[in-house]
């Protein structure tokens, strides 16, 4: 399938628009995650699932890198979710994916996810934007939402090589900045936690 490797390389969901909806993804972790691929999730989602349990399932999907899911699934809440649920879910996801608390060797990946979670939260916590998003989702357009919000008519250009080159450049940048482990460019917090981890390893060896 086109461009899955690029799917998480930025906040810009324009690059996530697949040629056709990804009905099936081989890397899907579980059937319940699979449900989130359906573009009309109201019928398939069980709103009685508690937020935390739901989040746990979706988390796996998130880290498996290749799945494109709705903002609701991203936060692990039902579409009927209240503002309080959205806020609570956002904070739980932040506690997991924010680079200050993520494992030192996964900062790059988790930072990308945090940026996505942030976009989902900003959209769903604003009633006007949430209404727009819900409408687009009903029309099967939810993946194009970011593009619409930015007022750009660029969905078609997503397929061009330009976009992927640009995105490659951006993710390459991120990788380079993260790989200089010991250098000043490594996150201060990551350095601290790595230092701690290594220390613990040393103690284990003793």
């Amino acid at each position: 399938m086109r461009g899955y490797g690029l799917a998480l390389s930025g906040t810009d969901s324009r690059c996530f628009v697949p040629a056709m909806p990804p009905i099936f993804s081989p890397r899907r972790a579980s059937p319940s995650v699979g449900n989130s691929q359906v573009l009309f999730p109201k019928s398939t989602r069980n709103p009685s699932l508690c937020v935390r349990a739901k989040a746990a399932v979706v988390n796996e999907a998130l880290v498996s890198d290749a799945v494109e899911i709705s903002f609701y699934d991203l936060l692990g809440i039902p579409e009927s979710g209240s503002m309080a649920e959205i806020k609570q879910a956002y904070k739980q996801m932040a506690l997991k994916y924010h680079p200050d608390v993520s494992p030192p060797d996964r900062i790059e990946e988790y930072t990308r996810k945090f940026i996505k979670v942030q976009e989902a939260y900003e959209t769903l916590s604003d009633p006007r934007m949430r209404a727009l998003y819900d409408r687009d989702m009903l029309g099967g357009l939810h993946l194009a939402f970011s593009a619409r919000r930015r007022g750009n008519n660029e969905e078609m250009e997503v397929k061009s090589g330009w976009k992927s080159l640009w995105q490659d450049q951006l993710s390459g940048l991120r990788r380079r900045s993260m790989n200089k482990d010991s250098g000043a460019s490594m996150s201060w917090g990551a350095r601290m936690r790595r230092q701690r981890d290594e220390l613990n390893d040393d103690e284990d060896e003793v």
Binding site: P99, D100, I107, T111, Q169, L170, L173, R174, S177, S185, M186, S187, W188, G189, A190
Partner: peptide, 12 residues
Amino acid sequence: MDIDSSNMLRVL
């Protein structure tokens, strides 16, 4: 513009 986890700003 990209601000990373160590608050580094890069412009592309």
